[in-house]
């Protein structure tokens, strides 16, 4: 249920890699993402989806063109400002589940919120528990993350991305390690936070059903956008 309000857009985004030979990974990428939209990015392996997502996430700043978030130009901002922006407004789920191994699941989820410092420790703890519970992980909360299965770790990293209620959540194959039941849980959760809380999801996926069921799909090939799918509108499709 996109509101028509643009939360993120790019103008002529391009990126080169110079190793081993110079080539253009992203070429003239211009698109908008709306508030409350569940957007998926698809394309063949090596088409530049992850690379694009890193540029959008503000972690990669070596691109040409411009990136705007909530109407504000992000390109050219200082590293510290970008870090603060990521902390408060962007949640990230990585292609490989990256968690801090020495900490418990709960602590991993809490750390971005502790950094933000908007709530007290107790409140943050409660919120983190709630997110873990929603992802079926409440009983794992006090386990060290290194002792969790791949799918469980993936879900912990989703909980972490959601903890600060960011305006945009970016995911690189968030369901890559999940069985169909958990894929369903994650999908429903994304749908709900997009449509009920007005947060925007930008998810890279190889799962066609997952993409089909999202609000809109952008397809990449060789670093170019080859299709901007229409907004489907809310869907009650569930991947099996």
């Amino acid at each position: 249920m996109a509101s028509g309000e643009v939360i993120l857009h790019t103008k002529g985004l391009g990126k080169y890699f110079h190793q081993p030979v110079s080539f253009k990974v992203l070429d003239d990428i211009s698109f908008e993402a709306y508030r409350g939209e569940f957007l998926t990015l698809v394309g063949k392996s090596g088409s530049g989806k992850s690379t694009l997502l890193y540029c959008l996430s503000t972690m990669d700043t070596t691109y040409e063109g411009e990136l705007f978030i909530a109407g504000e130009k992000i390109t050219g901002k200082k590293a510290d400002d970008l870090a603060a922006l990521r902390n408060s407004s962007i949640g990230f789920v990585f292609q490989f589940h990256y968690l801090l191994p020495e900490f418990t699941c709960l602590k991993n989820v809490m750390i971005p919120a502790l950094k933000l410092g908007k709530y007290h420790y107790r409140e943050i703890e409660e919120r983190a528990y709630a997110k873990l519970e929603a992802l079926g992980l409440k009983d794992q909360a006090l386990k060290q993350t290194s002792k969790l299965s791949g799918g469980q770790q993936q879900r912990v990293s989703i909980a972490r991305a959601l903890i600060n209620d960011p305006a945009i959540i970016m995911c690189d194959e968030p369901t890559g390690n999940l069985d169909s039941k958990n894929t369903g849980i994650v999908f429903d959760m994304f749908m709900q936070i997009a449509h009920d809380s007005g947060q925007t999801i930008i998810a890279v996926t190889h799962d066609n059903d997952f993409a089909q069921a999202s609000d809109r799909t952008i397809e990449l090939a060789d670093g170019k956008i080859i299709s901007h799918d229409k907004i489907f509108g809310s869907s009650d499709f569930r991947p099996r």
Binding site: S57, A83, R86, S88, Y98, L100, P101, I111, P112, L116
Partner: peptide, 15 residues
């Protein structure tokens, strides 16, 4: 890896 995660989740270089 941990440093990369911290930076991705909003910790600055100074942190």
């Amino acid at each position: 890896n941990d440093i990369a995660i911290l930076k991705a989740t909003g910790f600055s270089g100074k942190d």
